[in-house]
Design a protein around this nucleic acid. Structure first.
Lengths: 333, 333
DNA sequence: TTGAAAGCGCTAACAA
DNA sequence: TTGTTAGCGCTTTCAA
């Protein structure tokens, strides 16, 4: 009944509990003959160590598990970060608990607390709550946290960010270089820090070229897309810069419907699958989710291994990928 | 030093250990005044229960954690399954450990073992190993496993499958109904059970229409796509049926490059983002990953809650989504 | 090199 | 309603 314990193995092998422990932990200071007997008993009984008990007693108290809180594990950016973190964790024999936050601050707090109670050795969080002061309450003080993709407030930790502002500015300069002067920015919810950074980058580039800004916040999935209204203006934009991949896709649909996809330039923030197969193929500024996940995981493992230096901010450069839609030149007036 | 224990709370509140335990576990049979004192001490010290110790002692031995082994957490189908499982788990206060298998049988065994040692209450696995007999060795006998998307061999467990064969046959009949007689099947690796089922469905439909089969196994990402060679045949197919979404995307690229995307019909197994935005939009037979994940999670939780009925096989129907590429009629000879 | 005893933080069983 | 005692499966400490 129940699974076999170390004691059962000891009895079965005719040795003491401690000898089994030594063999199981590969301590090496065990007579080879005894060790062989122990290993035979382990195999015979199908013994598996009880991690809970191990962690309870051990001094280092490591569970070799980290927690990863993402926007939505099913969304491509999050999924790519997840994958990169998993790969880094795997090389260290560490497992990953994951959760989706869905822009819900309460859920961020709950999951962080739950993972802490599960004794995650550390957490990687894409912050969605306005501040992360709750972490001091939910986490033991020695559990490191790394923030990825958005800055945190009210908690110390390394932060891995894309160069949102510079990337956005580069995108807009690209449109300007292709002759556009009326460039509209379709922004994500300003609640989100990355959306604000991208807007700043847009403004940087427009201001340095002496062009007037034209910004609209794209509403949620229920509402109608913003692009059609903009394009009905007396002096409509000749180029759209979209702040986020879902907005980009909406813009593609809208331009298609209006028959303007070959006349209005489009440049989107963040790459997405099949962007190259659309007509025209969509030019994007892309973050590098794999590099971001990798950097976050490495920073976290460094902290878990005792790195106590000042928290760092790690920038992962974005990349402009010209594909066609962002190279269309302005037409008509 | 270290985090506070129940004992610290007891001392701080001036009550016995057991009283703290009762309050923490909401047993209710505690004098409200005492309970309040305990709660104050908990808050003061920042006490968090040690789940490891709890699970060690408790009779029910539940960790409220399940393990989920997927092909690749970053791939859309897996990610959607993941999300559905997470949602079901969430309603039960259960957390999800995830891992990607990358078609590596060794990794399937390792991860299943690792999650078992972590005392997952149950496992959901997309099998990639040729058989799952290893589970008997890696898992305690009372840990239920549910298989999703592919059948398992050598281990008992509920299985959630898409109607691959029927879905494929439906797809091929759809092409036949649009006038096609030379329909090629671009198959995934026959090692994979779903690929074999889809091929059977293709053959079912071709045979019932008295048409000759034309099958090619699509090589891996390094090699050249199969479609161009097929289309150079003396009597080339007028329609392609692709067995998997990556193959579909390769076929789209190939047809594009050959300028045949408006002449050769294309019908793909599995939907993918933006399939509706391509030109022509891609007709697909789609599995329902969310329904599959949900069904798998529900089956697993039923088992965890003590369901001991015979293992079931749960079929989740596929759906044909006509979008244009599958409705092109044959041209020329 | 091996083993005996203690105890990690908690809950079960029982007693007061 | 509250407290006491024992012990979950393991590692630590210390003794042999």
């Amino acid at each position: 009944m129940g699974r076999p314990t170390m004691n059962d193995v000891a009895r079965s092998a005719g040795v003491s509990l401690k000898t089994v422990s030594r063999v199981v932990n590969g301590e090496g200071t065990v007579n080879p003959a005894l060790a062989a007997r122990v290993r035979a008993a382990v195999a015979l009984l199908g013994y598996r160590p009880n991690l809970g008990a191990t962690m309870l007693r051990r001094n280092d108290r490591r569970t070799r598990t980290i927690g990863l809180l993402l926007d939505d594990v099913s969304e491509p950016f999050s999924a790519a970060v997840h994958r990169a973190v998993e790969d880094e964790a795997r090389t260290r024999g560490v497992h990953v608990l994951t959760g989706s936050l869905d822009d819900d601050p309460g859920r961020e707090r709950d999951l962080a607390g739950a993972f802490a109670r599960r004794h995650a050795d550390g957490l990687i969080i894409t912050p969605t709550a306005p501040d992360q002061a709750y972490l001091a309450r939910e986490l033991p003080p020695d559990v490191p946290v790394v923030f990825v993709d958005r800055p945190a407030a009210g908690h110390r930790g390394d932060t891995v960010l894309a160069t949102n502002r510079d990337g956005a500015a580069e995108a807009v300069r690209h449109l300007i270089a292709h002759g556009h002067r009326r460039i509209a920015f379709l922004a994500g919810a300003p609640r989100i820090a990355t959306a604000r950074s991208r807007r700043l980058g847009y403004r940087d580039a427009m201001r340095e070229a002496g062009l007037p800004v034209c910004e609209a916040v794209e509403p949620g999935p229920g509402a109608e897309a913003t692009a059609p209204a903009l394009l009905r203006l007396p002096y409509p934009p000749t180029a759209l810069f979209t702040g986020q991949h879902l907005i980009t896709v909406r813009a593609v649909r809208a331009l298609r419907r209006l028959g303007l996809h070959r006349r209005i330039a489009l440049l989107g923030f963040d790459d997405f699958p099949l962007a190259d197969l659309l007509d025209p193929a969509v030019t994007v500024v892309s973050r590098d989710p794999a590099a971001m996940g990798r950097a976050a995981a490495r920073a976290l493992f460094a902290r878990i291994d005792g790195d106590t230096k000042q928290p760092r901010e790690i920038s992962i450069p974005t990349m402009l990928i010209p594909r066609g839609s962002g190279e269309l030149r302005p037409t008509g007036s």
